[in-house]
């Protein structure tokens, strides 16, 4: 246990402290330890893992709704594309840049950029449709250089580099563990067809068995993207998401 006591300061101490305060100030006026980034003429270089505006790649999207489900701010709503599939839209009027969605995306369709300094004139513009999230947006760049904070064992120093910092990071899209949907108890199936209706990839099909007058469901594991929606919606809870072998 460490005790911190505040002693009585006598006149000598006070004078000493006056001198040290004044001399520190004087030193700083002469040789300042300046750390200012001159935004907008220059930008700070953020680390590559910086969480900024989000880009979307429809090729990799499996329409699993997970980004939308996990979003704490409910900023991601799925919108039906002309093809009938659901793709995310992003409302920057709500987005908190936690990137739970980016981390959730099993196909790696969402990725981060270092864009973050944007001002909107009205809130309607903040709603970003799927079509706008595919190509990197262009922002006003008034910067002629960028600043890096370098911390060594002595102090923080600013390293200034001419040229424009790249805001779109090239990282390989991450892939979640590949999964596939599997029915574990065919006998309990009531053929409500929910799984077929909810499937994005057309992997679930229903077959009417004329002889027995029952409907049989079938999951095509080749087509299945492992989005897990059928597992979630199954009214009998007999579907499981298992690892693709």
């Amino acid at each position: 246990m460490k005790k911190v006591a505040t002693p009585e300061y006598d006149i000598k101490d006070k004078l000493k402290y006056h001198v040290s305060a004044l001399s520190t100030a004087a030193k700083e006026v002469v040789m300042p330890l300046n750390i200012t980034t001159h935004y907008p003429r220059e930008r700070r270089k953020w680390p590559d893992c910086f969480r900024g505006y989000i880009l979307f790649d429809p090729e990799r999207c499996i329409s699993c709704f997970e980004c939308s489900f996990v979003c704490p701010a409910n900023a991601i709503w799925m919108k039906e594309a002309p093809s009938g599939r659901y793709y995310p839209t992003l409302d920057y009027g709500k987005c908190i840049f936690c990137h739970f969605c980016v981390d959730s995306c099993p196909g790696g369709a969402l990725r981060s950029t270092k864009i973050h300094d944007v001002a909107y004139k009205n809130m309607d513009e903040m709603f970003t449709h799927t079509e706008e999230m595919i190509e990197p947006p262009e922002i006003i760049r008034e910067d002629e250089g960028y600043v890096e904070y370098e911390i060594d064992k002595e102090d923080l120093t600013l390293k200034r580099t001419k040229g424009k910092d790249k805001l779109i990071v090239d990282v390989a899209p991450s892939q979640g563990v590949p999964m596939v949907s599997l029915c574990i108890d065919r006998g309990s199936c009531i053929a409500c067809k929910v799984c077929e209706k909810v499937c994005e990839s057309g992997a679930v099909s229903s077959l009417l068995d004329e002889a027995k007058m029952i409907i049989k469901m079938k999951i095509d594991s080749e087509k299945c993207t492992g989005c897990g929606l059928c597992v979630k919606e199954c009214s009998m809870q007999i579907l499981r998401l298992v690892r693709r072998e």
């Binding site: 002309p82 009938g84 793709y87 944007v118 909810v198």
Partner: peptide
């Protein structure tokens, strides 16, 4: 009067692949 961010619109492929679909329920 200029926009600070300019999105480029990329049209999504327009082939109707899927018919009426059910929207998943809340998790």
């Amino acid at each position: 009067d200029r926009k600070t961010i300019e999105f480029k619109r990329v049209e999504l492929p327009f082939e109707k692949q899927l018919e009426e679909r059910m929207v998943p329920t809340s998790p």
